[in-house]
Amino acid sequence: MQIIILARFFGYFDDKYKKGTGIVFSKGSNGNGLSGVAEVLSFASTGNAIPVLHEIRHALVELLGNGTASTIDLGAIPFAAGDERFLDDVLGKGEVTATLNVMGTSHVQETAVAGVWRVDHFNEAGETQSRFIEVTFMPEILKTQTEDAADGLEKLSARLKEEDAS
């Protein structure tokens, strides 16, 4: 069955984003009932991925022009699964991937568009806390913070003192 889902599903976006393109896809013959619905929805699009990609492009111009880094909160934009898919497809995977173990995990990944990073924070239960696109040379969260380095110095010094004493 051919199902056509208009990217402009959400009528209220029409005036804001005239550019929404249609997505056409085929649903597999096994796509029935609930799994079928899930499959249909995984392609559903609000048409918001394209404007976000333009915003990212603009941020990259700013970064190269005057060194201004910027952050886009993906949680603040109505995104359907299809938008997420489209964003990932266009940005791709880059050279750097890092996993942070801090209050749960955080995934930091440079996309194939260098200078554009995905930063996803999860809590201890693995639930998503927040999702960002950072357009920067180096995401702040990857750098060692001064306070943590000071802590580190304290710990190392204490350890060496113990060694001296023994």
């Binding site: 949680g75 927040s130 969260i141 943590d148």
Partner: peptide
């Protein structure tokens, strides 16, 4: 036992949660 980096993560998620611009972090 939460580092300064953890505090930054906390602030980033809080900003998103409060529906504020990431620039407010």
């Amino acid at each position: 036992g939460i580092s300064r980096r953890g505090f930054l993560k906390y602030c980033a998620s809080l900003t998103s949660l409060m529906a504020l611009s990431p620039a407010m972090m």
